[in-house]
Simulated assay, not measured.
Amino acid sequence: MTDLARALQEPWPDLRLQREGVGLGMWFFLTSEVLFFAALFCSYAVYRSFNAEAFHIAAAHTKIVYGSINTALLLTSSLTMTIALRAAAAELRRPTLLCLLATAALGIAFLICKGLEYRSDLAEHLVPGAGFPLTPPATQIFWGLYWIMTGIHALHLTAGIAIVLVVTTLFRRQIIPVQGSTMEGVAIYWHFVDSVWLVLYPLIYLAGRS
């Protein structure tokens, strides 16, 4: 059985329709995710409109160095994922595997950097509740949203890393071919997670430095 034949799954009659189906399914899934994050972003916008000065003060205490490093890591991971997708389309198995591993490694580096940032935030007691060091009290709203939004993004990224590693293993063992629709679905999800961070970065790290 050829790789193309193995790539075709039931109930699709041909690979073109299968790719379109996978793409459409992923976009439906991501639409629900977009609505979820949009609700968080709207909450941020509403609270900031009523507490502009407090948000400015709170955001000034975020660690922009960590945020900038993580932005660079995710932008680079988007590049390696794009190269992996192109390599898979050209049926270049080894470059596809290498770029997928590089993408997962960059994602793990992001989580490590985020963990270091969280440790620094905890050391400064920047968690809403008793002993919160900033004033006015509305600064706690910003930090509450910070922990919620970045935490949810980190969970999505963790899921993305796991998916990339599983798919890489399946490709390496030739259980599924690299030129199938699986690669396209993985790439769509990864780029979505990266795009969410590109919205979070200015909201969290630049808001207090404008």
Rank of each mutant, 00 (worst) to 15 (best):
P13D: 15
D14S: 14
L15A: 14
L15G: 02
Q18N: 02
R19P: 02
R19N: 07
R19H: 10
G21W: 08
G21F: 09
G21A: 15
V22H: 04
G23V: 13
G25L: 13
G25V: 10
G25R: 13
G25W: 07
M26R: 11
W27N: 15
W27P: 12
W27E: 15
F28P: 00
F29T: 14
L30A: 08
T31P: 01
S32T: 04
E33W: 08
E33R: 06
V34I: 13
V34L: 08
V34R: 00
F36I: 07
F37V: 08
F37N: 11
A38R: 06
L40G: 10
F41R: 01
C42I: 15
Y44L: 05
Y44V: 07
Y44W: 07
Y44P: 04
A45V: 08
V46M: 04
Y47T: 10
Y47A: 08
Y47H: 07
S49Q: 03
S49W: 01
S49D: 04
A52L: 12
A52M: 06
A54H: 10
A54T: 13
F55P: 07
H56G: 13
I57M: 09
A58Y: 13
A59Y: 06
A59L: 06
A60G: 09
H61V: 11
H61A: 12
T62L: 05
T62I: 04
T62W: 05
T62Y: 03
T62S: 14
K63M: 03
K63H: 14
I64N: 00
V65Y: 08
G67A: 03
G67K: 01
G67N: 02
S68G: 14
S68C: 03
I69C: 03
N70F: 00
L73A: 00
L73F: 03
L75F: 01
L75E: 00
S77P: 05
S78W: 07
L79V: 15
T82R: 07
I83A: 12
A87S: 15
A87F: 09
A88I: 07
A88Y: 12
A88S: 15
A88W: 06
